[in-house]
């Protein structure tokens, strides 16, 4: 094992850095810029059973230390992801990829995951029960322990791949939901998805986002994310992937000390397309600075 490597649900990652779903597409835009095989893995664009256009535009609003998005799970649908995106991805990425899945019913989650279960390229299923931008699905499963557990059970029944549940911070007790997912058989937890936010245009007096509200992300949410990763990692016995406002190698180490086994980087990719590569390249320097010989050793190392 290298000093950057970690084990995520039985699969070795060369390093803990994972571009987060929705900020990395299916990898090609970034593969034009650098060899994306330097990544631990990446979580591909949230996939649903049927194709989705998503929400009307504007879908993006700027904030002082972050942004709001209301894309609304635009994706070509699982059949096209398997038929078109994965074969293209195979040309540029040679590691197991994380398949991010969303749904509008428990049956949809299960059917989509069953289809992806057959795909050799898929290493993990990241089941998103936390998208704030769609109605009647996504987050509605992630704000209720029973609903979240039902999704996990249905998905676990159709796959042998590790199932990681991506949780919403827009809840009163994230620990209870994480534990319910663990009890239902989840192999890992990833958190946090975006915080529900809003901006208003002073000229038009209308919300900037056509969908009125959207998911707030970026460095502003890092302390909230870190706190929730700390709470969940100390309450469950399955690996936790930390994410939310991570921008640099120091943030990665902080997330891992709080309890993260791996770290997803999202919005930073949109501002600096080289963000993940820079973090990976910078990790050895920061590890040396803080006398860390192996990243795997510092997981949950907060005193």
């Amino acid at each position: 094992m290298g000093k950057l490597s970690v084990n995520l649900c039985g699969i070795e990652l060369d390093n803990p850095i994972i571009p987060a779903s929705g900020t990395f597409g299916f990898g090609y835009e970034f593969a034009e810029l650098y060899d994306i095989n330097c990544l631990g893995t990446f979580s591909f664009k949230g996939t649903t059973l049927h194709p989705r256009f998503g929400n009307p535009t504007p879908r993006i609003a700027e904030c002082s230390a972050g942004m709001i998005n209301a894309v609304g799970l635009q994706n070509p649908g699982v059949d096209d992801v398997i038929g078109e995106e994965l074969p293209k991805l195979k040309q540029v990425f040679h590691k197991p990829v994380m398949a991010n899945v969303s749904g509008f019913s428990i049956e949809e989650y299960a059917e989509t995951c069953a289809k992806l279960d057959n795909q050799e390229q898929v290493g993990w299923l990241e089941v998103n029960v936390s998208c704030p931008n769609v109605h009647g699905g996504g987050m509605s499963f992630g704000v209720d322990s029973h609903a979240a557990a039902s999704v996990v059970r249905a998905v676990k029944a159709v796959t042998t791949k590790p199932v990681i549940v991506k949780l919403s911070p827009n809840v009163t007790d994230i620990v209870a939901i994480a534990k319910a997912c663990e009890d239902a058989g989840a192999d890992g937890i990833s958190l946090i998805n975006t915080l529900l936010g809003m901006r208003i245009d002073l000229r038009t007096r209308k919300p900037v986002i056509a969908n009125k509200m959207g998911g707030f992300s970026g460095p502003a949410i890092f302390p909230v994310a870190l706190r929730m990763v700390y709470q969940v990692a100390h309450a469950v016995n399955i690996p936790v992937i930390g994410m939310g406002g991570v921008q640099c190698a120091e943030d990665v180490i902080e997330m891992m000390l709080a309890g993260a086994t791996a770290v997803e980087v999202g919005t930073a990719n949109l501002i600096d397309p080289f963000a993940c590569k820079k973090i990976i390249d910078d990790l050895p320097r920061v590890m040396e600075q803080y006398k860390i010989s192996s990243l795997a050793d510092i997981i949950k190392g907060v005193r």
Binding site: F24, E29, V208
Partner: peptide, 27 residues
């Protein structure tokens, strides 16, 4: 013109419907 997140095709923030399918204004 459209409000953009990344500007290079990653975030789907500026998608529009066309007669030849969904397109990203930025990419």
């Amino acid at each position: 013109e459209e409000r953009m997140g990344c500007g290079f095709g990653a975030c789907m923030g500026c998608s529009c419907k066309t007669l030849t399918g969904t397109k990203r204004i930025c990419k």
